[in-house]
């Protein structure tokens, strides 16, 4: 598991946990606003980073080096 994947898992778990916290415990309204503004986008971002396909290892360097002309 590379660094990006580990960070994504970490962020995903934290953000889902905090959304569940706001759903179940019902904290003061400004905490709910803060949680929803920060963690709803982070949930989707980390989900996207986790769910995206991974290319072959040997092709990755080419894709990173010439991203605007290769495809």
């Amino acid at each position: 598991m590379d660094q990006l994947k580990a960070v994504s898992w970490f962020v995903f778990i934290i953000s889902v946990a905090s959304i569940l916290y706001a759903l179940i415990i019902n904290p003061p309204y400004w905490i709910v606003y803060a949680i929803s503004i920060v963690f709803i986008p982070l949930t989707i971002l980390s989900f996207g980073l986790l769910s995206m396909a991974k290319g072959k290892k040997e092709e990755e360097e080419d894709k990173r080096r010439e991203p605007f002309i290769g495809y």
Binding site: I37, V38, I40, P41, L42, I44, L45, F47, G48, S51, M52, A53, K54, G55, E60, K63, R64, R65, P67, F68
Partner: peptide, 26 residues
């Protein structure tokens, strides 16, 4: 597109490159 591969170009300003898309959602 959530299932498609994304490459992060070497020329990009990291981690700003990812954070700016999150900012749009925020």
């Amino acid at each position: 597109f959530f299932l498609k591969e994304s490459a992060f170009p070497k020329t990009a300003a990291m981690p700003f490159y990812i954070a700016i898309t999150a900012m749009l959602c925020v």
